[in-house]
């Protein structure tokens, strides 16, 4: 039955230009602008359709990385994984800008074995050992995903914005904790550490449950990766950019193989049945707070 469902999904997705409807992944920080007398924040993390409500799954926190202004890693406290949301506290010991990120770099593969479809999910290292060499109709998709938010104690700093060089990353021109309603903010998007040209960027204000439209703002990056958003109002915003299909994220937060859903179908199958060049899906999301 499971196999049947999977096959059906694969078939359906093949017909759909965008692939499966993915959910949005996001962090919700309790504050983003703080004074030095604030000693910490609580952050919720979820995968949902609505912004910023918890109606699907809690985000898996195994790839959570919190970076302090000096570049050191911060250990989250009181980590909780609920059905609809995960949550954790971030102690804020020093002034400057903190980055809260969940970044993953995974590989999905599918092939045929004894006439049966096989699906697999792992990373580049396990791919070499776990996926049989010369598998029939092997299709491979690399999925690079990054979900972030930023928090500043006192004066904003920029040391946490050192690019890792993997996937899509957001670099400040305007600091992401210096956003004000009615003003324009400019950021740069990098793809594998280089300016990401001509990438569509979507920004959606929170509170989608209480209005009838997504009210999304879209723009496109220039040759230097730069794009500008003028904030129509104060609030939390969800910023997203992606490449290679899968509009809004890799599904369920990089968990169980089942959660990979039917997206594996998006990679191209070579004509002669040999392994096709791996396709790549890159996704970036950030929660940004705009103050009045």
């Amino acid at each position: 039955m499971k196999t049947f469902t999977t096959t059906l999904c694969l078939a359906l997705v093949a017909l759909s230009p965008l692939g499966a409807q993915a959910h949005k992944q996001f962090f919700v920080p309790s504050s983003t602008v703080l004074t030095e007398n604030d000693h910490g924040i609580t952050v919720d993390a979820a995968v949902s359709n609505d912004l910023f409500y918890f109606n699907h799954n809690g985000m898996k926190l195994d790839a959570l990385l919190i970076t302090a202004p000096d570049g050191s890693a911060v250990t989250p406290e009181n980590v909780f994984s609920g059905k609809l949301r995960s949550s954790f506290d971030v102690p804020l010991q020093t002034a400057g800008t903190y980055r809260i990120a969940s970044a993953s770099n995974g590989v999905m593969a599918s092939w045929e074995e004894d006439g049966q479809p096989k699906r697999w999910r792992g990373n580049e290292a396990t791919f070499k050992t776990e996926v049989p060499k010369g598998a029939k109709n092997l299709r491979v998709t690399q999925i690079v995903n990054r979900v972030e938010t930023f928090v500043t104690v006192g004066k904003p700093s920029t040391d946490v914005f050192k690019p890792t060089g993997v996937g899509l990353e957001l670099m400040p021109v305007t600091h992401p904790n210096d956003l004000v309603a009615g003003e324009a903010a400019t950021f740069k998007l990098l793809l594998d550490g280089k300016p990401a040209n001509d990438i569509k960027v979507t920004v959606i204000p929170g509170g989608t449950r209480y209005r009838d439209s997504q009210s999304e703002i879209t723009t496109t990056t220039k040759a230097d990766g730069a794009f500008t958003i003028t904030w129509p109002a104060a609030g939390l915003y969800w910023l997203n950019a992606s490449l290679g299909g899968g509009m809004e994220g890799p599904g369920e937060g990089g968990g169980k193989p089942d959660a990979a859903g039917p997206k594996a179908a998006a990679s191209k199958k070579s004509k002669d049945g040999a392994a096709a060049a791996p396709s790549r899906r890159v996704n970036y999301s950030a929660t940004l707070e705009v103050l009045p």
Binding site: L34, T35, N37, D38, G154, P156, P292
Partner: peptide, 19 residues
């Protein structure tokens, strides 16, 4: 110095000078 915690609510001053 707990009173300083809310200085950020003077939003514009915080952004222009306070921080």
């Amino acid at each position: 110095g707990e009173g300083t915690k809310w200085l950020k609510d003077l939003r514009q001053w915080w952004r222009r000078a306070g921080r």
